Computed example of a mutant assay.
Amino acid sequence: MKKLSYILTFLLSTLAFAQNNQLFDEANTLYNDANYTEALEKYKTILDSGEHSAELYFNIANAHYKLNHIAPSIYYYEKALLLKPNDKDIKNNIAFARNMTVDAIDSVPEVGIAKLIKNVTNVMSYDAWAKTAVVFVILFVVLFIAYYFTYSTSKKRIAFLTSNVSLLLAIVSLVFAFHKFKLVSNDQPAIVFAQQTTIKSEPNLRSTEAFVLHEGTKVQVLDTVSDWKKIKLSDGKTGWIMNDDIKMLKNF
């Protein structure tokens, strides 16, 4: 019975994949014919089926951009970029979409040791850093065993030195793995969807106005209290925005 269930699941998945491919081709044809609204409907049908890909998000963003939908176009370009962070076409198109936004927000540049540590941390994913740490631990064990069983003084010295270096590199790799995991966990980007929204100094309507944001602006979510989210801009400003005024980017 379980085997039959697996077969049925496989067949249904194959059928859904074929249907989505057909819908994708139809949507692309509509897009090329400048029928952007109709193309969006087909793209969203694919999305509603549970399929997520950089190509799908990219095409949805393109259709929204053609229709001058500022927030949705940036939102879907950003989601495509999360899946393919080095894609030149996505980077190029999102730059055009960002030009439609009203808010001009400067970024506070990172400098010194903090910038260096972040750059090194971002060289690999936290999984890759963890695997690197495991490799160095294994190398440390092998070299330590070689040190223990070697009788030559020079070879003992080399084995001792390299084993300690391997242990140090394992610890460093593990530190970078935890730091990368923390960076990824704390990175909670969102896009403002409200045409205009007032950011409050506290999570309630009676609090004073901190600043005003417009659709398409990217923010970082720091905290959530009831129907409010605490956000931070790239220039360092913080405030509280209503949940309904933004959409989280990492919700797939």
Score class of each variant (00 low, 15 high):
Glu38Leu: 12
Glu38Ala: 13
Ala39Ser: 15
Leu40Thr: 06
Glu41Leu: 12
Lys44Pro: 00
Thr45Pro: 00
Asp48Phe: 04
Ser49Thr: 02
Glu51Lys: 09
Ser53Asp: 04
Ala54Phe: 02
Glu55Cys: 02
Glu55Phe: 06
Phe58His: 13
Ile60Phe: 05
Ala61Arg: 08
Ala61Pro: 10
Asn62Lys: 14
Ala63Val: 03
Tyr65Gln: 04
Tyr65Val: 00
Lys66Arg: 15
Asn68Gly: 03
Asn68Met: 12
His69Gly: 08
Ser73Arg: 01
Ile74Ser: 07
Tyr76Trp: 11
Tyr76Ala: 08
Tyr77Ser: 12
Glu78Asn: 10
Lys79His: 01
Ala80Met: 13
Leu83Trp: 02
Leu83Ile: 05
Lys84Trp: 10
Pro85Lys: 07
Asp87Thr: 05
Asp87Leu: 05
Lys88Ala: 12
Ile90Met: 03
Lys91Met: 06
Lys91Ala: 09
Asn93Leu: 10
Ile94Val: 14
Ala95Met: 08
Phe96His: 07
Ala97Lys: 03
Arg98Lys: 15
Arg98Ser: 06
Asn99Phe: 07
Asn99Gln: 14
Val102Phe: 12
Asp103Cys: 09
Ile105Pro: 12
Asp106Trp: 00
Val108Cys: 04
Val111Thr: 15
Val111Trp: 14
Gly112Asp: 11
Ala114Asn: 11
Ala114Met: 04
Lys115Asp: 10
Lys118Thr: 13
Val120Ala: 09
Asn122Asp: 10
Asn122Gly: 05
Val123Glu: 08
